[in-house]
């Protein structure tokens, strides 16, 4: 192309090129400092949009993780309470129901009766356990004591009834995992029968009614089977909660990797680009300075 090169044309072209290189240098420099290729949606609308979605999902997963901890605490506490009820109250009550068969000593009988009363009291206390200020086994009526006792004039428990809600509180403990981390109220109400069997056993021992003792023992055995099923059910929930945690943690990591791929700078590439552009800018300055100092006037 045979074009006249004029002072303005040369200066403008040269400055425009320098500005273009400088803009690219600043971009590469920023990538190296922030480690990010995309900071604003306009940097790469598609990548930014994906990253914003992924970040939003991360926030939700993080909240699920918090709910997961709350649920895990609740299910662990429920499991511990039921285990305590089964191992301490039911097992010992059944032992006592067998021990009274051979008893002839009145003092020993009184001791067993006293122990049974304590077991019933303990059972009631266990089933009215509070966790984070709420009753574990009263469903969503969690400020109400789930089991209330009616006592005799002497203070003995003569009946126990369920006063909680028929509905459990359920919530999200992970992505797509919605459950109630405590015992379902339908199962909890069975404990009223359990208490009734314990009270019947105590009263049968007191009256020496062997048939009634056998009946109560049999009932307690059924109760134990039910509680084992409840424990198994809680174990299943615990497993689901822990699986959700593992799954969500892995998903969170994948999202983090996704964001990394969409947004983060390739540092090796950015640093090479920065070096190349810096060299180009240095050269452009030198050429500009040299060329603009060249004039026919220098030779006159």
């Amino acid at each position: 192309m045979n074009m006249r090169i004029t002072d303005n044309a040369y200066r403008e072209t040269s400055l425009r090129d320098i500005q273009r290189i400088q803009r690219d240098v600043v971009k590469a420099h920023k990538e190296l400092i922030t480690h990010q290729r995309v900071e604003r949606p306009s940097d790469d609308p598609v990548a930014a949009s994906k990253a914003l979605h992924q970040t939003s999902e991360k926030r939700t997963l993080s909240q699920y993780a918090k709910n997961n901890r709350v649920a895990l605490d609740a299910v662990t506490e429920s499991h511990a309470s039921l285990t305590e009820f089964k191992d301490t109250v039911l097992t010992r009550a059944q032992e006592l129901s067998i021990l009274v068969d051979d008893i002839s000593d009145g003092n020993a009988k009184e001791a067993y009766l006293a122990e049974l009363n304590q077991l019933i009291e303990h059972g009631l206390q266990v089933m009215n356990t509070k966790h984070r200020g709420e009753y574990l086994f009263s469903g969503d009526s969690s400020l109400t004591e789930p089991f209330s006792a009616v006592r005799s004039a002497g203070g003995k428990i003569i009946s126990v009834s369920y006063a909680g809600s028929s509905k459990a509180r359920s919530y999200d403990v992970g992505e797509g995992v919605h459950l109630s981390p405590t015992l379902d109220p339908a199962q909890t109400t069975q404990f009223s029968t359990c208490f009734a069997n314990l009270i019947n056993l105590r009263d049968a021992i007191s009256s020496g009614d062997n048939n009634a003792i056998d009946l109560a023992r049999s009932g307690l055995l059924t109760n134990e089977t039910d509680i084992v099923a409840d424990l198994s059910n809680l174990g299943g929930k615990q497993m689901r909660i822990e699986s959700a945690k593992v799954f969500d943690t892995a998903r969170y990591k994948r999202l983090e990797e996704g964001i990394h791929g969409n947004v983060d700078a390739d540092l090796a590439e950015a640093s090479t680009r920065f070096k190349d552009l810096s060299d180009a800018l240095d050269l452009a300055f030198k050429i500009h300075s040299h060329a603009t100092s060249q004039s026919i006037l220098n030779y006159l």
Binding site: V38, L61, K66, Y252
Partner: peptide, 16 residues
């Protein structure tokens, strides 16, 4: 609506 990686958490336990 900016994306700041230095301010975002890489741990599920503290990002929300």
């Amino acid at each position: 609506e900016f994306i700041s990686r230095s301010e975002s958490s890489s741990s599920i336990h503290d990002s929300s």
